[in-house]
């Protein structure tokens, strides 16, 4: 396995006329936990989406465990899970059905789903359609989906947002456990104190540039 989990090499990303990310280079070692900070619109989400292979760089290259996220998209995505602002769930399905779908796509056993729902405190709402969930509950379910994948790299975009204090503590505990287990973590957050507790170093973005 490569010592470098993520290699961002001179990456720029343009949306229309606006450059969201400009000539960004960054190396993240396997097992490292990196906090990504910056004001709103500084390019944090764009960088995370590039790392997940959900969008292609306009300029430059990005590799995940030596796999190019554009040319070897499928292989690169295998290593990565993303917890983003959007829940990624089907609102007309229940919490358990959403996780069962992802378990089927991952080729995983569905027996773990009950345990995962309990872990994110949604076991009692397992059969409730996601449409009836609050934003915080949707975030918890997204976290369960990330846990189900058991990835080598976890990309977290504002993981504490929309959560109550209990939920925030749960997320913090889970990130600490993943860090201990050697998972590579990239954590974009405005919750600086929590972020610093959970990361080895801090990287700051300002107007799409690394500072």
């Amino acid at each position: 396995m490569s010592a470098q989990a993520i290699q961002v090499d001179g990456v720029s990303k343009r949306y229309g006329a606006r450059w969201a990310l400009v000539r960004t280079s960054l190396q993240i070692n396997a097992g490292e936990s990196v906090m990504l900070t910056g004001h709103n619109g500084s390019g944090k989400t764009t960088l995370l989406r590039l790392m997940a292979g959900l969008t292609a760089p306009s300029v430059g290259a990005l590799r995940v465990f030596d796999r190019d996220v554009v040319r070897e998209r499928q292989a690169a995505r295998t290593a990565v899970a993303l917890l983003s602002h959007q829940s990624g769930h089907y609102d007309d399905l229940s919490a358990a059905e959403n996780l069962r779908l992802h378990a089927a796509l991952l080729g995983r056993d569905t027996q773990a789903i009950d345990e995962l729902l309990a872990r994110v405190r949604l076991r009692e709402r397992a059969d409730t359609p996601v449409r009836q969930f609050s934003a915080g509950m949707k975030k918890r379910l997204s976290l369960a989906r990330v846990m189900l994948k058991r990835p080598k790299i976890v990309l977290l975009d504002e993981p504490f947002g929309e959560l109550d204090p209990e939920g925030m503590a749960d997320v913090e505990t889970w990130i600490a456990e993943e860090r201990k287990a050697g998972t590579t973590i990239v954590l974009a957050t405005h919750w600086i104190d929590q972020g610093r507790r959970l990361s080895d170093r801090e990287v700051r973005l300002t107007n799409g540039r690394l500072v």
């Binding site: 997940a52 292979g53 959900l54 998209r73 499928q74 995505r77 295998t78 990565v80 899970a81 993303l82 983003s84 959007q86 829940s87 990624g88 769930h89 089907y90 609102d91 007309d92 779908l101 992802h102 796509l105 991952l106 949707k138 989906r145 994948k149």
Partner: peptide, 18 residues
């Protein structure tokens, strides 16, 4: 529409489904 809502299709493709 159900795929675009909450970016559910993106989450499916990240599994990574073919």
């Amino acid at each position: 529409r159900v795929e675009a809502e909450n970016r559910a299709l993106e989450a499916v493709l990240l599994t990574p489904a073919d």
